[in-house]
Structure formats: C-alpha cells, structure tokens
Amino acid sequence: MAKRILVIDDDEKILRIFNLLITSFGYSPILVNDPAEGLKILQNDPPALILLDLMMSPMNGLQFLDERKKIPGALHVPVVILSALRLNDEEFAPYADSVAEVAIKPVEPAQLKEIIARYA
C-alpha cells in the first residue's frame, strides 16, 4: 500500500496539482482545504507526511501546528511547510521543533518529489 501524504491547503488549484503529482510519485494523497479536517485525520489515521500551507482561514497553518501538539503521538508525523509566506526567524522560532522543512511556493515537481522522499 502506498504511503499516505496529507496535503492541507485552501487553494483548490494547488490541491488538484498536488493530487496529480503525489499520485505520479507513487504515494496516496489525502487532500483537505481545512486545517481542522487535517487535525481529525491526524488524530484518527495518521499519514506518513503532512504538507502544510500557512495562509488559510479561519485556521491558519501555525494554528494547525499549535493544535497538533495536543494530539497524542502526532508529533512523530513530519510536517513540511509549503507556503508563499516567508516567516522571519523570530516568527518561526516557536515552530522550529515542529517542522521538518520549509519550502517556498511555487515548488517545482522535482523538488516536491525530493521532499516527500526525504520524509515519507
């Protein structure tokens, strides 16, 4: 069975593209546009990896990371932030231990494939 990759992004276009790419890489994508839904998946059936956007509403990616800490065992699932938002060191510091990697959008398919292979 293919490893499951949870993608949390409120942009439907991004979700469609990531669905195609992740599937072509041999993984099974789980696509959600609501971080709260991502938390439910993480709690009930954890994926191998989470790809997380930051700029979402009403819950953003940083709030997702805060809530993730409350789920027993959830911290073992690596999170890669994929966002156009660039955090400065001070903004990112509280989350450094919760995030495996940060990549700035747009992410090239080859880069995405490498990221997923590194953590999934």
Rank of each mutant, 00 (worst) to 15 (best):
I5H: 08
V7K: 12
V7P: 00
E12Y: 12
K13R: 14
L15C: 08
I17N: 03
N19R: 14
L20Q: 12
T23C: 08
S24L: 09
S24K: 11
G26V: 02
P29G: 08
V32I: 13
N33Y: 11
N33T: 04
D34G: 08
D34M: 12
D34T: 14
E37V: 15
E37R: 15
E37K: 14
G38C: 11
G38A: 13
L42R: 08
L42F: 14
Q43H: 11
P47N: 07
I50G: 04
I50E: 05
L51W: 07
L52R: 10
L54T: 10
L54Y: 01
M55F: 11
M59W: 05
M59F: 02
M59P: 00
G61R: 02
Q63L: 12
Q63Y: 03
L65N: 01
L65G: 03
D66C: 09
D66R: 14
E67L: 13
E67G: 12
K69N: 06
K69V: 15
K70M: 10
P72Y: 08
G73W: 03
G73R: 04
A74Q: 05
L75W: 02
L75R: 10
H76W: 11
P78W: 11
I81R: 01
L82K: 05
L82T: 07
S83R: 13
L85P: 00
L85S: 02
R86K: 13
D89L: 15
E90K: 15
E90R: 15
E91R: 06
E91D: 00
F92A: 01
A96S: 09
A96P: 14
D97F: 15
E101Q: 10
E101V: 15
V102C: 04
A103S: 13
I104T: 14
K105C: 01
P106I: 10
P106K: 04
V107Q: 03
P109N: 08
P109G: 06
A110P: 07
Q111D: 08
E114V: 11
I115W: 12
Y119T: 12
A120E: 07
